[in-house]
Write a protein that binds this DNA or RNA. Structure first.
Lengths: 134, 134
DNA sequence: CTTGACCCTGACATTGTGTCAAGGACCATA
DNA sequence: TATGGTCCTTGACACAATGTCAGGGTCAAG
């Protein structure tokens, strides 16, 4: 099948399919005489795997490792689990970071009148003489 | 003062100071005869403002608007509050998204033996015949 | 054969930041 | 004054992941 079909069936954009090929995440696709890339169901399956991993927040480089493990019949599940838990921890870290930012903002906003008066604790906070790095 | 000092005092890297100038977030710095950029305390104050906003997750473009509001003595606090709450909501959205990913991963990992056996529900899930987009 | 849908490559944009290179400026000390 | 070390300048390349646009073939149906 052509790349358009593969894209629709896998949920990975044509752009990204080509990109993954370029960076070597997936092998170079077979080509027709016309030069068109040609995919089969296994390829689509692989693309779905990638999409799913991507949706779970794995960076490309780790997706590559997951793919290798997936294709290695003798892998140890511990190796996979290690990647997954490391990712989960990283996500937890980001989550906390964003949460802290959000709460600060909500706190600031709650103290702001939000009317036509000009004074605003949000700007006051942003402008506060805080520590630079020096 | 030179850019190095301004950077240290504001906590914004030299790279980003120049970048902000390039994209017009801050006005072009004054120059010495030597060509060196020259900053004063007000500039540093502005840079700190930017850094603080950046730390709160505001994208550059919104930081520009905040700066304008900050410098506008007659702004209405409602305008500032609107930006802040919109940002908070966006952060909340991201937070949820990341949280969902993390929980899925943790769930998958909890069902994985994590030993030398090859079978692993994490890979099984990634490889699952899920819906593509077609 | 023409038309429209599909494919190809390559390039540019985004967001925010780092780093490296080649070259000039400045300052202090030998 | 010459030399060195530290600072500055610009410009370019890089990351991750993606979109989009342009200019040009391909294919299939009418």
């Amino acid at each position: 099948m052509n790349i358009g079909q593969a894209s629709k069936r896998s949920g990975v954009s044509q752009r990204m399919i080509r990109h993954y090929e370029t960076i070597g995440l997936i092998p170079k696709a077979a080509r027709r005489d016309s030069g068109y890339r040609d995919y089969d169901d296994r390829d689509v399956h692989t693309l779905r795997f990638i999409r799913r991993a991507r949706d779970l927040g794995f960076p490309i480089e780790e997706i590559g490792r997951l793919l290798a493990l997936w294709q290695d019949r003798s892998r140890a599940s511990a190796d996979v689990k290690a990647l997954a838990t490391a990712r989960a921890q990283e996500l937890r870290r980001k989550e906390e970071e964003i949460r802290a930012m959000r709460r600060t903002l909500e706190d600031l906003a709650s103290h702001c009148h939000g009317d036509r008066r000009p004074d605003c604790p949000i700007l006051a906070d942003l402008a506060a003489e805080g520590r630079g790095d020096a």
